[in-house]
Design a protein around this nucleic acid. Sequence first.
DNA 1: TGAAGGCTGAGCAATCTGTACAGTGATAGG
DNA 2: CCTATCACTGTACAGATTGCTCAGCCTTCA
Lengths: 161, 161
Amino acid sequence: MGIDELDGRLLELLAAEPRIGVLEASRRLGVARGTVQARLDRLQGSGVIRGFGPDVDPAAIGYPVTAFATLEIRQGQGRDVRAHLATVPEVLELHTITGRGDMLCRLVARSNADLQRVIDKVVGFEGIVRASTAIVMENPVPLRIVPLVRQAARDAGGPAS
Amino acid sequence: MGIDELDGRLLELLAAEPRIGVLEASRRLGVARGTVQARLDRLQGSGVIRGFGPDVDPAAIGYPVTAFATLEIRQGQGRDVRAHLATVPEVLELHTITGRGDMLCRLVARSNADLQRVIDKVVGFEGIVRASTAIVMENPVPLRIVPLVRQAARDAGGPAS
DNA sequence: TGAAGGCTGAGCAATCTGTACAGTGATAGG
DNA sequence: CCTATCACTGTACAGATTGCTCAGCCTTCA
């Protein structure tokens, strides 16, 4: 487990220019094509790279409002609630968490008004006792991974030298 | 703005098999290659598809712990705090939100113990008054977009018929 | 010393991409 | 009703890329 400096550079490159091919990547990185191919295979095999799914902007398909909802669940209803939330398309992700509240989910909606509908759909279920919602105004740091990759690569490569 | 049924199927297909090429996609969808190419260009041009960045699993590169932190910011320090958090690699995303707390950020760490270090780094800054953290235990619904795409495509295609 | 693993550079057949062009059907405007 | 526009189809071609394999070289490790 872990990645070295070359893996890090490869991931950065892929993040910056995803449509790049193996051949072009090998040129940019200054290594042989076979090396890039082998690294990619390994990264995917080991689960570091989950995939290359299209990064779809919810706002661009009509869902410009994002919100986070903290849910409090009735004891023992966790499984049912999870199953319920999984059926709601506007629930983009769901986590079970420690602390105040039992679950945290990311929601999107067509408008602030529509968010009410979404929340009703989410909360309108047996096991959910209470929900508290926070609407996202700005997103100063969009979901990113490159800085972390860079650090992980440094941690692996630095101390070893 | 909005996507039709064919866009929806294309996005679903890309999500399911990202390494697929334009030609193979056109075969699967039963349309001409040029059509797929045009749709892809349009989807990327209109911002629906932001990119095809590699989906990296933080756990696989040594950061298996995820947490969400709600931050309370001192009046007028928002800009500085944003800039500060942007420099922390373990901050995967940052939102400004309504309600209790002013910002919500997603963090990762090498372990529960390491999370303390990360939080110290995040909170160790002038403008942050208070931070409340929730550790993620499970992730029953990983970040997903397909169900939403499907619904958006239905909404666009259905009522029109 | 020998074995194993990773990288290089090269080669080959098959495939895919970028691009262009003509034909067709549907739609919107005149 | 006629016509321009637009999207999709089917086809074509040159150039680039991919998947795969092989031999050689170097470093690490037992």
